[in-house]
Amino acid sequence: MFIRRLAMSVVSMCLLAAPATAWANAAPSLIDVSELSNGIVKVQHHDTAQSVNDKVKISKDNQHFYYSVKDHNRFPLQLGDGKYTITVLQHVADNKYRAIESKEVNVTVSSPQAVFLQPIQMIYWNDKTNAVAKARELTNGLKNDRDKVQAIYNYVIQNVQYDYEKANRVTSEYIPSVDSTLNERQGICYDYAALFAAMLRSEGIPAKLVMGRKNDIPQYHAWNEIYLKETNEWITVDTTYDSIMVKGTKKPTMIKNKSEYVIEKQF
């Protein structure tokens, strides 16, 4: 009932060596670091016919994240302050890529939660997004973040259905559209988590999209962690799980036990 692993494995790619001059004189830069204080880096398409398959690799210490360069190319620097290396990888053939630009940046974010308030490629929204308008409608008049989270959570679990067919055909290149999930009222766990995060972030509530494992689900899974400033804590919320539970006789509880989940990636 849940998603396949959507993270690109390092071993699935062959990175071809490229001399430093490959990007030393390139202009303009494909890597935009103007939003580092928000924990965001932006990447432009390389202007070639092959650029449709370009990737970006973001590394800090021994952790690496790979993303496809498609639309809304805003990527999180979610591993806290410190030195990151951002590398744009041009597709050559099959699983072969070469680095065409690389940049090291020192990141100091404005607050620990800043990155989890931003639109990013997989949680993209703006003022014209229908999901943002719906979040504004649902939270109108509510002052407490906990109440806002509850209102949006109730809407999502009651109005979005799990799409089993999509779960069987989705590929590793899939990127959610929050408005498609809202309008179609169905999706996989990746869609649920992206929609919930976008709606909360648009209301100024920090939200993580988390991927990994749940103790009673054999498949790879996605859920959310939400920051409540009133209690200074991150809570675990699983809208996919609860959208299925709510149709049964047992009423789901919004806040989950963290010990039931194993985090592998968070965005």
Score class of each variant (00 low, 15 high):
G80C: 06
G80Q: 06
D81M: 06
D81Y: 00
G82W: 04
G82K: 03
G82A: 08
K83E: 14
K83C: 07
Y84H: 01
T85E: 13
I86T: 07
V88Q: 02
V88F: 02
L89D: 13
Q90N: 09
H91Q: 05
V92S: 14
V92F: 14
V92A: 09
A93N: 13
A93E: 15
D94N: 15
N95M: 00
N95T: 06
K96Q: 10
K96M: 09
Y97S: 02
Y97V: 08
A99M: 15
I100N: 01
I100R: 03
E101Y: 12
S102F: 12
K103W: 11
E104G: 14
V105W: 04
N106S: 07
N106V: 03
V107C: 02
V107G: 05
V109S: 09
P112V: 03
A114W: 04
A114S: 04
V115R: 03
F116W: 04
F116L: 01
L117Q: 07
L117T: 02
Q118E: 10
Q118M: 14
Q118R: 08
Q118V: 15
P119H: 10
I120G: 01
I120Q: 07
I120N: 06
Q121P: 07
I123G: 01
I123H: 05
I123C: 06
N126L: 10
D127M: 13
K128S: 11
N130G: 14
N130L: 10
N130Q: 12
A131W: 08
V132Q: 02
A133H: 13
A133W: 13
A135S: 13
R136Y: 11
R136Q: 15
L138Y: 02
T139I: 03
T139S: 11
T139F: 03
N140W: 07
L142M: 08
L142A: 05
L142T: 11
L142H: 07
L142N: 03
K143I: 01
K143F: 00
K143W: 02
K143L: 01
N144L: 09
N144H: 09
D145Q: 11
D145Y: 12
R146V: 06
R146H: 05
R146M: 02
R146S: 06
R146Q: 03
D147T: 05
D147F: 00
K148D: 02
V149Y: 03
V149M: 08
V149R: 12
Q150F: 01
A151V: 00
I152A: 00
I152S: 01
Y153C: 11
Y153K: 14
N154I: 01
N154M: 08
Y155H: 07
V156K: 12
I157V: 08
N159S: 05
N159D: 06
V160Q: 02
Q161N: 06
Q161G: 03
Q161P: 01
Y162G: 12
Y162D: 09
Y162T: 15
D163T: 00
D163Y: 01
Y164H: 13
E165I: 13
E165K: 13
A167Y: 08
N168E: 10
R169T: 13
V170R: 07
V170G: 07
T171F: 12
S172G: 13
S172P: 12
S172I: 15
